[in-house]
Design a protein around this nucleic acid. Structure first.
Lengths: 207, 207
DNA sequence: CTTAACTTGTGAATGAATTCACAAGCCTTA
DNA sequence: TAAGGCTTGTGAATTCATTCACAAGTTAAG
């Protein structure tokens, strides 16, 4: 398949959000124009994004809301259950453990890991915190699809190396550092420092 | 000034992170090649990014680490103090209140806001939680530069409208919804759902 | 059946971002 | 002073992403 740009995938994800909203409101069809207005883009962009995966609309009419939502879920791989380990049971880890968006999308949090004695054995919103010593062993046993990284920046790369070696192929990191991993491992980083500095830049360089 | 791409600003932010690391290790100069390797990009990209703002290097030698770090801080607007309100005192708000990256970059959290009676009056890691009723009044009094939004998705747009009307010109949102604001308001969104679905897509569409 | 009003899907055109490639400058050594 | 080894800064070339523009298909109304 042709390589799909990251920006395209992000928009597909946004379209799905709007469609779910439309589904709840009982609307049955929607045009690329309406979808575009909701997402702050153009109708041509919407149609082009979808065209990479097929023709889902009807000319003159638009898209069937439930059908397109289903197709997008399929494209994005949201049909199956994804198994998740959280590594780092600090404040961010805790916030993620209770984040309902995970379950809503079929992401099941199996466990959290930490190296601090006063966290190990406790629960993080129903998720038990285990000793990070057992990380590799548990990865081999429970085969998580995704590791969410919420450890301090200076430990992030070390954990990446460990989980990649143990067989994990997708990582979502909240550490403010550049991570290096083999090409076949999908790494996404949510970098707060970067976002803040982006705002600072925008505020500083106004027209 | 020529319009600077978002991706460029994000890279500048990353370069600054590496330079701070080099500063701590006492290194005095660095080449675009080394900076590129650290950031997973190319030396030409590094030089092009910097060239939008001036010529900071010495041919044959590279860049002075402290000088380039200083220039980048200046470009990114990190010299001054930025005043921040957090709106939404849930788990994510709490995680942000204790996030040290804010203070490190000169972002001062003035207060947090919530509408829940059992949170108002409490403290979130030293930050007092106020009644969201007083949001507009306090914005006018204390003139925050940035509002960080950690309210549930269905309330996010309403809060955006309120703070924009009260004069705020920069927003960092953690709500998984598309936000609409006037063009002169800088809005950044950290959308966890999008990142998760991006990973799901990557795992599903492996070559 | 015909016309009018819509809306999709997609090549072609445009615009934006990245990479190439090399002249110009700096440092060291002799 | 000259030569060799580096590295920057930047137009030009290339690659990638977005927007344009329109033929083709659909529906509704008369």
């Amino acid at each position: 398949m042709k390589r799909i740009a990251d920006s395209t995938v992000r928009r597909l994800s946004a379209y799905l959000r709007f469609l779910e909203d439309f589904e709840n409101r009982g609307l049955s069809t929607i045009s690329s124009e309406e979808l575009a207005k909701r997402g702050g883009t153009t109708s041509a962009q919407v149609r082009k994004d979808l065209s990479f995966f097929g023709s889902f609309g009807k000319r003159g009419l638009g898209y069937s809301v439930p059908e397109l939502a289903g197709r997008l879920r399929e494209i994005l791989g949201l049909g199956k259950e994804w198994r998740v380990f959280i590594v780092g049971a600090g404040k961010i880890g805790a916030a993620l453990a209770q984040y309902r968006g995970f379950r809503q999308r079929g992401f099941t949090i199996l466990a959290a890991y930490d190296n601090s004695a006063d966290k190990i054995g406790k629960k993080l919103d129903g998720v038990s915190v285990r000793d990070i010593e057992h990380l590799e062993r548990d990865i081999q046993r429970e085969k998580p699809d995704i590791v969410v990284l919420t450890v301090p920046g200076d430990q992030a790369q070390k954990v990446v190396d460990r989980v990649v070696k143990a067989g994990v192929r997708a990582i979502l990191s909240f550490a403010p550092t550049q991570l290096h991993a083999p090409a076949d491992v999908a790494v996404k980083t949510v970098n707060m420092a970067m976002e803040l500095e982006g705002l600072s830049f925008a505020l500083t360089n106004r027209d």
